[in-house]
Each structure stands twice: as structure tokens, then as C-alpha cells.
Design a protein around this nucleic acid. Structure first.
Lengths: 335, 335
DNA sequence: AAAGGTATTGAAAACGATTTCAGCTTCTGA
DNA sequence: TCAGAAGCTGAAATCGTTTTCAATACCTTT
């Protein structure tokens, strides 16, 4: 503690400059001096002061990640991918958890703008597109995962929500269902909107009329899903399947069905989105759309790092494929 | 981007000193000047440079958290508690994920010793006690959660693993079980050892002889649990219940039982530890020991911040209570 | 042995904020 | 009207590195 480069220099009979060179593996220093310096560093347990280094070099080698909720496996899978890539390139990672609160998200963004990070990644962001674009236009390295943004220098990795939703709904139709509920998330979320579009497309492909009363908002969380499903049931609507815009809301549906002794998939078949960690442990196991979350994180981190390093031709947006995982909750011959 | 305090100063016709004072809410500046400066700051969208500030102040207002795996809800629950306290006190939080690898953990520790954080919190650490003590003795603010360490200035919050395990096993005994398997984690983990001790104590209290062959190591993860349980079964041992040192290994047991059509809790009753997010969604739901994870994180963060602020009398170690949650996996009258 | 390179090293400036200390105003009271 | 205090502001030092540029040491060649 409190040992500085000059202390090392003095003890090793060299200048701070030389110590700095040793620290940064500058091959110009004579092997003999290098060894002497290293020995002193070891002896004193000297560790360079990050702030001084950052100030001089005008970079921090860290990436800031803003996620909606660190407890959601969709987010942590992505974060894992980011971390793996980042660490491999000697970057550190700061994680900020906004608790799905837009104001908190804005606040973190402000915090990160003090150059304590070299670049920012948004995961499941609630921020209006324009604010993200502004950020990029002010010269910050910014990337966003999950949501499609193709403007300014905003880096982006996402999956095709429309066709994924379409695939899920067509799967349900293939199982003989025609009255299919769509449980949407926040009304303003682009994800929700795209999944709705896919839902409608799938119905269209099979000439099933779209019934707006079968679309209900569950706010992307478990209780929201429970309540949305309850509303549908209490309205006395008839339907035999549910496509839920994420797995968490599906959990709410499970709970409701459990209470009211409604059989899954017998009376209601269900397909979710996200392949949450719990979904395969449910009984019946939950069919869901799996996004390559880890890969998405890894890929965006790569883009970001390359772009921070000044590489000119970094492809700005990439689309990865998601896939439908069919489990018990949507297949008639249960187990 | 690239706007410095002098730019603001120039435009506001004041010195950098005054701008700095405004930034730091120093009440000494005249309201009129303050407003003028604030206006320029707003106009220029000036954000102070973190590294410069950190360097001068010799602190960063951030806490480093090293966790074993960001995907484990035990860890994220704790992290949530830490974050809540930290953010309330204007601290940022850096999370490092070691993937349960001791070498990676050491590497992160080295990274964080560059004063890029003001204090360090270890969650589910694999580090030998002595190394943690060394850290504290070198003057760093360090805290550890989950594992009892009562030396040097190491801050600590943990629960009583021995009595928690004892409670779980006594619950099983109360359900009529006498041949109870103990699934342990890493052999060297203090947690495992304490839980084993509680297991043995519980047996002792009820005059049930301890059979070492009923203790098997599952490395704290799902496949480890599966394999450990398989080994026990293949040895042809007889037992009617399992106490698993964490929920993840219990998942492995569920899987094995599912494959081999072994009824839970009819043929094997199970109790785990951690109250993992999935445990309540399992069929049958998993009985488990719940630790007040959020509170543990919150409390340790509080200790750490107080100690970093130079408060002398911060109680160094706290013990919180865990509680047994009885669900279906350990009760004979299933459902 | 001198000239000209090349290798190796160090002195000092720079990064962008905060903080110390001194100085200038302005006010108060006699 | 003036001394002294209080209020407000700014010049310059400082934090601990890296980087630039110049200087020195050491070779090689002739």
C-alpha cells in the first residue's frame, strides 16, 4: 500500500521511466535492469495506481454493462459472453443493474460518461432509441443487445424476433390450436411489438383471423403473467394455447393453472421466449424460444472492443438466429 | 467529449477552482456565480474526468465484488443487497466472475489491488483464509460473505452452517428417516465441512450411528450431484433420504430419480441448501435452507463503507439466521 | 583511436481534476 | 472614514503514472 513508482525506482537504482518501461513490457530495457526492477517490484509488492495510469493514457480498459436485472438468466447469460471476450482482451467489466427502472438507467449512463469506462453495452435497455443515438453521436462507444438499432455508430446484435415468434405460433398451430393467446410485455417495448407481428403473421399464413381480444399485456414478469391470464379467463374467452413473450410471464400462467387445476398442455398449451433457467425444470417442461445469449454478448463485446481500438470496418449490426425448443408444455402427447 | 474544466471555466469567466467548487457543491460560492457555471456545464454537457478526480482524491467510490458465478442466484441475491446499499451511498459496484476457478479469483484480486476500487467483497470465495487475511493486513478494506473469518480486519457476514444443517437433518429424522445421505461440496470448502458437522451432530442427537459411506462428494454442481448419487445407488447402499449441501446438486439427484423412476419423496426424501430460484418450481418442490442473502450483502456493504470512511467501531463479524423451508420433497404426505 | 551507429537510460512535461493558501472585495461597527 | 472580519475567488501545487526527447554508454568499423 502506498508504494509508488519512485520508491521502486530508488531501490532499483533506476529512474521511474525505466520502471514504467518494465511494467509495460517495453523490450527496450536491458534484461539485467529489467530483472533487477522486477525483483524490487516483487519485494515491495508494488501495484501501479490505476487512476494515474488511466489519466495519462486516457483509457481505462473497462467496459460498462447496463442490464435490466442481474437476476434474470437472459441477462446473465449475455453478461457471461461479454465477460469472456472482455477478459480475454484484458478488459474489465462493470455491471450496473437498473431494476427495470428507466430513471435509474439514465442515472447509470450519466455515471459511466465520466470516462471510467471505455465503452458501454446496454442489455434489455428501456432507453428511447434517440438517447442511445445521441450517446453514440457524442463520441462514446456504445452497443446494444437484443433490440434492433441501426443508426449512427450504435453497435448492435439481435435476433429476428418476428420470425422467431412466427415459428413458435406456427408450432402451436401445427399442434392443432387455432385460438391462441398472445401475452405481450411492456406495450412500448420493441421486442413485444416484433413478437406480436410474428404472431399475427403466423395466424395469417394459416388463415386464422386475428382476434385482438386474445392479446393481453403482462409486463414481462411473473405476476404480470398471472394477472393477464386471469383477466383473459375471467372474460370467459375460449382459447387452447398461449404464446408468452417471455418465460417469466409463462411462470405466472403455470401458477394460475396450478391453482385452478387447468391442465398443461391438455387444456392450455404454452410456449414462452428466452429459455430461462427454470423453464426446463418445470412440470411440464416449458417449450420456449432460445436465443444464443452467450454468443450475442460475446459478439457485441468483440465489436465494441474492435471499435474502441479504432478499427474502421467493424460490422455495425449482426443478426443471430434463435431456435424453438419444443418441450412438454406444447405437445399433446404429454410425456 | 473532451471538454475539460478549463473550458467551462473560460466560458463562465471564472477559474477552474470555482468550477470545481460548483461541481462539488461547495456552499462557499456565490449563488450568482454558481448559476452561471452550472449553465455553462449544462450547455457544454461537461462531465468531470473520473481518473483525474480519483487520482487527486485517492479514492474511487467503487466497491469490487468477486463472485464465484454470476449465474447462481445465491450470488446474485447477495450482489443485489450489496448494490442497493452501495448505490444509496453513491458507490459504484464492479462485479468479477471467477467461474469457480481459484486462479482466476487470484487474478481478479491482483487487478483490484490497483486502487481502482476502495474496497473488496468476496462472495463464495475459494481463497485460502491466509491470503484474505494478508490482504487486510496490507491495508485494504476487505469483506467476505458466507464464510466465517474472524481475523485481522476482515469484515464478515455469515450464517451458522452447522446448526442450519443440523436443523435440516433433524427435520428428515423427524419424518422417520434414519439412513440419510450427505452430499457434500468441494471437500476443502469450509461450508461443506460445517454442514457435515451439523449432519453428524443431528445424527448424534438421535443416537443414529454415523455411516461414512453415506457421505459422497458432488462438487456443488448439478452433474456432480447426479454422479455422486449414481455412485451411491450403484454401490447398492440403502437409504431413504438425502441432505444435499446445496440445491444444485439436488437438481442432479432429481434428474437421476426421474430417469430411474425413483419417487421423491416416497422412495427418497431430499433437502437442499440455498433456496435457489428453481427449487420452488420443481416437482416436487424442493425443501431447502434459505439464507438471508440479500440482507447479508446489504449488511456487509454497510460494514465495508463505514470502515472505508474511517469509522472506528464497525462490528467486524455478524451472524445472521438461516431458516428451513419445508416443501414437498421432504414430506411424506406428498401434496 | 576516432567516427558513427545503436542500445539504453533519464529529466521533465503531460494527463485533468482538487486543494491549499493567499489575495481581493465587501461589509460591519465604531 | 477606517480597521478588521467575513465572503468569495484564483494561482499554483499536487496526485502517480506515461511519454517525449535528449543524453549517455557501448559497439563496430575504419
Amino acid at each position: 500500500m502506498d508504494i509508488k513508482i519512485v520508491d521502486v525506482a530508488r531501490l532499483a537504482n533506476v529512474s521511474p521511466t525505466t520502471v514504467s518501461r518494465v511494467l509495460n513490457n517495453n523490450p527496450i530495457v536491458k534484461p539485467k535492469t529489467r530483472d533487477a526492477v522486477l525483483k524490487v517490484i516483487e519485494e515491495l509488492k508494488y501495484v501501479p495506481h490505476a487512476a494515474a495510469k488511466n489519466l495519462r493514457q486516457q483509457k481505462t480498459m473497462t467496459i460498462g454493462v447496463i442490464v435490466s436485472d442481474i437476476k434474470v438468466s437472459y441477462n446473465t447469460d449475455i453478461v457471461k459472453g461479454i465477460q469472456t471476450k472482455a477478459y480475454a482482451q484484458k478488459y474489465k467489466v462493470v455491471i450496473c443493474d437498473t431494476q427495470n427502472d428507466l430513471d435509474i438507467e439514465r442515472e447509470y449512463l450519466r455515471l459511466l460518461m465520466d470516462r471510467s469506462v471505455d465503452g458501454i453495452i446496454l442489455v434489455a435497455s428501456l432507453l428511447p432509441e434517440q438517447e442511445i443515438v445521441d450517446l453514440a453521436e457524442r463520441g462514446f462507444a456504445v452497443g446494444i443487445i437484443g433490440r434492433r438499432i441501426d443508426r449512427a455508430n450504435v453497435l448492435n446484435v439481435h435476433t429476428d424476433n418476428v420470425s422467431a415468434a412466427k415459428e413458435a405460433v406456427e408450432h402451436l398451430i401445427g399442434q392443432g390450436h387455432r385460438d391462441i393467446v398472445f401475452l405481450s410485455g411492456y406495450a412500448n417495448a420493441k421486442d413485444s411489438y416484433d413478437r406480436l407481428e410474428g404472431y399475427i403473421k403466423a395466424l395469417g399464413m394459416h388463415s386464422i383471423p386475428f382476434r385482438p381480444e386474445l392479446v393481453e399485456n403482462g409486463n414481462f414478469n411473473e405476476t404480470g403473467g398471472y394477472e393477464a391470464f386471469a383477466r383473459l379467463k375471467e372474460k370467459g374467452l375460449t382459447f387452447s394455447a398461449v404464446f408468452s413473450a417471455n418465460d417469466e410471464m409463462a411462470l405466472g400462467v403455470y401458477e394460475y393453472c396450478n391453482e385452478k387445476k387447468i391442465g398443461i398442455p391438455g387444456e392450455v398449451a404454452i410456449v414462452g421466449v428466452d429459455n430461462d433457467r427454470v423453464s426446463k425444470y418445470l412440470t411440464p417442461s416449458l417449450s420456449t424460444i432460445d436465443q444464443p445469449k452467450y454468443d450475442m454478448g460475446f459478439l457485441l463485446a468483440e465489436k465494441l472492443i474492435r471499435s474502441m481500438n479504432g478499427e474502421a470496418e467493424v460490422p455495425r449490426v449482426s443478426v443471430l438466429n434463435s431456435r424453438l425448443i419444443v418441450r412438454q408444455s406444447s405437445t399433446t402427447y404429454s410425456r
